[in-house]
Design a protein around this nucleic acid. Structure first.
Length: 268
DNA sequence: TTCCAGGCGTATC
DNA sequence: GATACGCATGGA
């Protein structure tokens, strides 16, 4: 990764980044595609328009300070994914998935934002999840804090049209704001303990917890098993994923998920 | 109309 | 601990 300041913009040079494979694959629900290789979205209250392809990107109207403090960590630009892919290439399926899903990265999202967004993701589709989170942020003019959301009720959140998930969001807000579930502390716990803590929140089961642990707390052992990943496991890993991938299986999951959903999905 | 969407809580065995 | 079922909403 290298970059330069160009007027009000930042120019980013990074060969290992494909926006469609990072911002439009169900890892985050806070970005909209506004053109070919062009997205507008948020990390908490920070908004950004990013565009580009083939290793060159423009972060529009971005200070160098925001770039270094917010977007470098968010896009995980300090991690060398080629070393991971080298490891993954020892496995035939993972190798194919990596070749298909070029430029995937694990987003380092805000913990609280990830928790709420993935609560809204359960038994839901990406378009609706984006709509719900957009209405939530629009209502407050920014992404609400846990304290603010804890004042709400499932009824007062009716405008979200989140269905049965509204009560889960309120429960999460109450437990997080009261520190019954202290996200700062949870992030420090080892994977299994952290997962158990998150699952104290209603609406947070194994899958949602793993998504929050992976993209909200960067625990790369977290391995979200949804319907698509269950198909992957049945088809390619009947005896389980090889042990050598355990520590980073969450990132392997990103490649496999995109592979089965976009590529194998089209084959029917 | 019916089915499904990156699941989860609850009841039941 | 495993399995079945309902759940709000909206697009296909």
């Amino acid at each position: 990764m290298r970059y330069e300041v160009s007027g009000k913009d930042i120019i980013l040079y990074e060969d290992d980044l494909v926006l469609d494979n990072v911002l439009d694959t169900g890892q985050t629900f806070r970005w909209d595609k506004i053109g070919e290789n062009r997205y507008f979205g948020h990390c908490l209250d920070k908004a950004l328009e990013i565009s580009g392809e083939n290793g060159r990107f423009v972060l529009k109207d971005t200070t160098e300070e925001d770039f270094l403090k917010v977007w470098v960590p968010y896009f995980d630009l300090e991690t060398d994914y080629s070393k991971l892919r080298e490891l993954y290439s020892e496995d035939e399926t993972l190798k194919a998935a990596c070749e298909f899903s070029r430029g995937i990265r694990l987003l380092r999202q805000d913990r609280w934002e990830a928790l709420i967004c993935f609560i809204f993701s359960s038994n839901n589709n990406i378009t609706r999840i984006k709509g719900i989170t957009a209405r939530l942020a629009e209502h407050y003019g920014r992404f609400p804090t846990a304290e603010e959301l804890a004042e709400e009720t499932p009824e007062s959140l009716g405008y979200l049209r989140a269905g049965f998930r509204a009560k889960y969001a309120v429960d999460a807000a109450k437990k997080v704001s009261s520190k019954e579930v202290d996200l700062e502390e949870v992030a420090k716990l080892p994977y299994e303990m952290a997962k158990a803590e998150l699952m104290k929140i209603k609406g947070v089961g194994p899958k949602v917890a793993d998504c929050v642990l992976l993209s909200g707390m960067y625990k790369t052992e977290a391995f979200p098993l949804d319907v698509w990943m269950k198909r992957v496991m049945e088809k390619y890993y009947k005896d389980g994923l090889p042990e050598k991938f355990f520590e980073t299986r969450g990132i392997a999951q990103l490649y496999l998920f995109n592979y089965i959903r976009k590529f194998k999905g089209e084959e029917k």
